[in-house]
Design a protein around this nucleic acid. Structure first.
Length: 275
DNA sequence: AAGCCAACCTGGACGC
DNA sequence: TGCGTCCAGGTTGGCT
């Protein structure tokens, strides 16, 4: 569900509600997530005030005042982070609850359990392999040349390269499809076969689509899966040009958008505009 | 050794 | 109503 714009939207809404506030109590259920929640780890944040929240790709890092620990969160496919009044009914699959001063609770809810919710010592967090492996942030202007160079060296389909978090960190299937649509590139095209000029346009299209989506508070599809920390939907779905639009006419040329499978996942494209 | 793909989970939509 | 099938925004480890 959540890609860079959704994670950034959650970061901002969490920060607005929680920065400077003290965690009174941490309740972590020992449910197995991708990287299992260990209740003991989360006791380390009891009594701590939230200093700031950083985003690395699709990960969020909670930094605590005067504590040598860092909390690492990833929403996987179905994770939500919400701030709600203390004592409001807890949905099933609530794996972590931080009671925060001001009668609020930060909750991590994740039905599919592909997410991550860890608290590690500062050194362990800094060397946490999934973070160390991450590539450039696609909103960073320097990421353009990184994408171009990686693509020239890769025989993978360009959509696969865009999803590779070691190259660019934060791109998922929706925005990969949308950027390829805007750049007029077929998702299945071999990366190394695309000219530097077209790759440069792709990097720019990616930066633009991600920035617009952040502005709109992310993409909430019809299933209502994504919401920010206040439970608000994002408004970028109406701007999607291809993702989920199988059978609809291409805005640019009128050709019918098709859905195909590539690397086991859906791609959506206009077969006329994207070559 | 880069690149593919099944596996990890649950729930919702759909067809019969 | 129920049951089976397919699908989903992500990541990884094991295979070729």
């Amino acid at each position: 569900m959540p890609e860079l714009p959704e994670v950034e939207t959650v970061r901002r809404s969490l920060l607005a509600r929680l920065v400077g506030r003290r965690v009174a109590v941490a309740e972590a259920s020992p449910v197995r997530l991708r990287a299992g929640i260990e209740p003991g780890q989360w006791r380390a944040v009891e009594g701590a005030r939230l200093a700031s929240i950083e985003r690395r790709g699709k990960f969020l890092l909670l930094l605590w005042q005067e504590r040598e620990c860092v909390s690492i969160l990833h929403l996987g496919m179905s994770g939500r982070l919400v701030v709600v009044p203390t004592g409001s009914p807890r949905p099933t699959h609530t794996h972590l609850v931080l009671g925060v001063e001001g009668d609020m609770e930060l909750r991590f809810v994740d039905p599919r359990r592909f997410g991550t919710a860890l608290t590690l010592g500062a050194a362990a967090a800094a060397s946490y392999p999934p973070l160390v492996r991450l590539g450039a942030d696609p909103l960073d202007p320097d990421s353009g040349p990184i994408l171009v160079d990686a693509a020239r060296r890769s025989r993978s389909p360009i959509r696969s390269l865009l999803l590779d978090q070691r190259v660019l960190a934060g791109v998922g299937n929706i925005y990969a499809n949308e950027a390829l649509s805007r750049a007029g590139i077929n998702p299945a095209r071999r990366s190394s076969a695309i000219s530097r000029m077209r790759l440069g346009r792709l990097a720019e299209a990616l930066r633009q689509v991600l920035a617009e989506a952040v502005e709109q508070g992310g993409t909430t599809l019809e299933d209502g899966g994504f919401v920010d920390a206040a439970g608000e939907s994002g408004y970028f779905a109406v701007r999607l040009r291809v993702y989920g639009r199988e059978g609809e006419p291409c805005e640019r040329c009128g050709e019918t958008i098709v859905r195909r499978t590539l690397g086991g996942r859906s791609v959506f494209l206009c077969p006329r505009c994207q070559r």
